[in-house]
Structures are given as C-alpha cells and as structure tokens.
Nucleic acid binder design. Structure first.
Lengths: 139, 139
DNA sequence: TGACAAAATAGTAATCGTTACTATTATTAT
DNA sequence: ATAATAATAGTAACGATTACTATTTTGTCA
C-alpha cells in the first residue's frame, strides 16, 4: 500500500541499465551513476534495483559467480558468462519445457523451472590479445 | 610441491559428506563435524573442503543461491533445488553437449560448458504439511 | 502558493559467507 | 627421538548486501 514516489536516482539507474547488454553488477552501476550523481550512495543503488526487480521492470541475474547481475531485459532467456572478461551476455534461446520434463521424470517430482548459464570465451575475447584479460570494470 | 599430511578433521569431513545426498553448506558440515570434534574451526572446514575439491575428491556446487554447497559425487550430473525445504538433490541426467551447441550457434562463439539447476518442490515436501517448511538445518 | 505526510535519500553500521593470518599442535621422514 | 613442515584453532579481515537513521525530496490538498 506504499505509494511509489519519483526519484531522479531511480530513473537514472533504470535508464543506465537499458544502455547496457552485459548485465552489470550493483557496484558497476553505482560507479556509473556517480558520474551524474556524485554522492548517490551504494545503498540507494541496491534499494532501487530490488525495487525495480519487484516491479518486474528489471531482472536479477544469478550466474553462479556469487555476485548479483542486473538485466533490463525481462523476457525469458538464458545467459552466457565469458570465462575471460567475465561479462554476462544474453543467449537468445527460448527456455525449454522439455528440460523440466526430463528432470521431472528423473526425480519423480514436479519441476517448475531451471537456471541455465552457459560459459566459454566470447567473440571479443577470442580475437583479443590475452593481455586484455583484466578489464574488470566491465563486469 | 607441498606434501599432503593426514588429518582426522579432513577425513571426518570427507566421510560426513559421503553420508549426505543433499549437498550441505560449509556451515552445516561444520555443525555436524563439531559433534565429533567440538573445537574444530570453521576455517578448517572451508580449507579442507577446497583442498578436497582441488584434489577432485568432492565438488563445489553453485546453485544460484549465493551459498556454496558441497557434493561427494564427482561424476557429471545436474542439480535440483527444492523451493520449499531448500535441499539440493541430484538429477541423474547425462549433461548434454547439444545445449552447448545450441548456445554456440545463437552466440557465434565457442561454448564449453553450462550450469543447469532445476527447481520445484521435492517429493518429501509435496507430501508434507506446509508447517514443515523451515527445516533450515538440512540446507 | 505553502505546509504537511510519506517516501527516498546519503551516510554509516551491521550482517553473512568466505578467506587470510598467526601462533600452536600434529604428522611424517629421517 | 628429532627436525621439518603441514594442519590446526582462533581470530581478524574481506567483499557483497542489507539495515538503520537523520535529513531531504516528492506529492497532496487546503
């Protein structure tokens, strides 16, 4: 029952996320928003990200690296994590119910969903020199 | 080049893990080993778990909940996480290369592996009363 | 307009899972 | 047995995230 009020910071966070297709972490978002709002706090970034996720406007992506990534694309799709640069990319495959059915048979209970994250070396990294490995800021 | 030396604690940790099929967390392992070794430290548990994983004797399982789970079964297989009791169960399906190939086509780069975690309600929970939801100690 | 209520903020402290450090103890080769 | 070194318990540090609080911003309504 709490009415939502506008905030520039929230708008800026959502707008920034729309410009990125690599599923940045809260910290990366924080550092980018700080260019426009130098004293935004990390807590504000986290609070707005989970608020937006609660509204269904963004998704929280867990890819098994123990850190939350954020995605402005809320249509169902899989992800790919580059082992070299760490970026998360979208995989445009339609999530399959067959997988759930297979698992359901194997387990003998109802399987309602699954998390699928691919890994390998992305196009950029496979053409780049190995020296470029540590571009951590793009995580 | 460091020679491995025997330790009772390590043996106990590995033996305990073999008795469990629900992929316990370090904390659950710690609390169970403490019954036998009351002043084992959590650090010792973590150190031995990663040592054993390095030796290929156990596996570290990441199922997207941000906590490490440990598995004494090192043969390739998928996992299932019960949304109610939180337990991780094995899914006896042979990991598929077809999935990697599909993703590889969609992305246009080499895909070498994937993480697949199913979710739903396990057999036990679907027959249990909803009051039994919070058996956190089995995580 | 302006004043009030509610929501959002910045800044900071707290929490949780995990890793690192250090002085002591246990294991193993000689 | 002794000496070398790995492993330990205990504790501190860490990084990601959440919680708290006093202040600021937003929206409503007279």
């Amino acid at each position: 029952m709490k009415a939502l009020k506008y905030s520039r910071q929230r708008e800026s966070i959502e707008a920034f996320l729309k410009t990125r297709c690599d599923h940045p972490t809260a910290d990366v978002i924080y550092n980018n928003i700080r260019l426009e709002y130098p004293n935004i706090s990390l807590g504000t970034v986290y609070r707005n990200l989970s608020l937006l996720a609660g509204l269904g406007r963004i998704n929280i992506v867990n890819c098994g690296d123990g850190v939350e990534h954020f995605d402005s694309d809320t249509t169902p799709h899989y992800h790919f994590k580059c082992k070299q640069c760490g970026r998360i990319l979208d995989v445009r495959l339609t999530p399959s119910c067959q997988l759930n059915e297979l698992a359901s048979e194997a387990l003998g209970c109802s399987v309602t969903g699954h998390l699928l994250v691919f890994e390998g070396i992305c196009k950029e990294c496979s053409t780049k020199a190995p020296a470029d490995v540590h571009h951590v800021d793009t995580l």
